Amino acid sequence: MIKKTLYFGNPAYLSLRNAQLVIKLPEVENNNTLPEAIKRQSEVTKPIEDLGVVVLDNKQITITSGAMEALLENNCALITCDSKSMPVGLMLPLYGNTTQNERFREQLAASLPLKKQLWQQTIQMKINNQAAVLSICTKEESKCMHIWANDVRSGDPDNMEARAAAYYWKTLFADLNGFTRDREGIPPNNLLNYGYAILRAIVARGLVTSGLLPTLGIHHHNRYNAYCLADDIMEPYRPFVDKLVFDLYCQYGEDVSLTKDIKAALLSIPTLEVRINKKRTPLMIAVGQTTASLYKCFSGELRRIIYPEF
């Protein structure tokens, strides 16, 4: 079953009752002129087990320790946002699998050649998915992208990823003067930042559920990054976010900002339809298959990570 994403952009009081997330509005709770019956009717409850991602985007949100504990015990990713409404924090459970210790040891024991091969597969799929996005959005085939994907060697020592990225962004937003992919750059970089943050949380959640450490990457190894493996595994998924952002850019124009409607569209990322193992499935379910296959690569059961494609 696909887990739900909840977004809170207004003041709210979140608590736990009978395995349900109870949502109350402070303006209703603190209004002494309203009868208790109306206050009770204003409460909304959501089954904790149905939630996969919860986004907190208001400084006046209060959440109880019991609610946080229940969310984390059910492998829900809890995202907090800054004053600019950009995701700034991610809370995940410390354990998400019954054989956690065994899986940690197998991940830690992964050889360098294996990690280089897994990175090669990851970049090849990312570039091929980027080529598919260009074909869909620009109606033109980018044969060079497929050539670069085939030329990726173990560990990508030639940095084909960067070469493909430079061509990809220049071609995807060719009509947007001066566009480069930069966190602080012009729109729709703001949408890409937001979408990637949601995607990162989904992938990190999937890794924890599969009993893996999101910190220890197969390629990324920044000492200050707690989610190196999530950043690795999300690479082939980024083009699905890119396609969504491109559609929003075409709909709202080059000065698109993070409005309520835009955020609602980006929060649909977990339910985006992707093709994996020759079947159509929501992105969040696909991530679970990808992270499960990654563990099997570490354990020696598989030789390839299962990634989605268009």
Score class of each variant (00 low, 15 high):
V287R: 01
K279I: 12
Y307M: 08
V256G: 03
K263G: 06
V256Y: 04
N277H: 13
Y295D: 07
R304D: 08
A264N: 12
Q251W: 00
L248K: 02
L272R: 04
T291I: 09
G253C: 05
L302M: 10
K263R: 15
I269Q: 00
L294R: 03
I285V: 15
K279N: 09
I269H: 01
S293I: 04
V274W: 02
K278L: 15
Y249Q: 05
R303I: 08
L283F: 05
Y307W: 08
L248T: 00
Y249E: 06
L248C: 06
N277C: 07
T290Q: 02
Y307G: 07
I269Y: 02
T291Y: 10
N277M: 06
V256E: 06
E301L: 15
T271G: 03
L248S: 00
C250S: 10
E301Q: 15
A286M: 07
L294D: 04
E273M: 08
D255W: 11
E254W: 02
L302W: 07
Y252P: 02
S299V: 06
K263P: 07
T259K: 11
C250R: 11
T281Y: 03
Q251E: 09
L267F: 09
K279S: 14
L258Y: 05
E254D: 12
R303F: 07
A292I: 03
D255Q: 14
S268V: 04
K278R: 09
E273D: 04
P270E: 02
N277Y: 06
A265V: 08
R303A: 09
T271E: 13
Y295V: 09
I269M: 00
L258C: 10
L267H: 13
V287C: 14
N277K: 15
T259I: 08
Y249W: 14
I262Q: 00
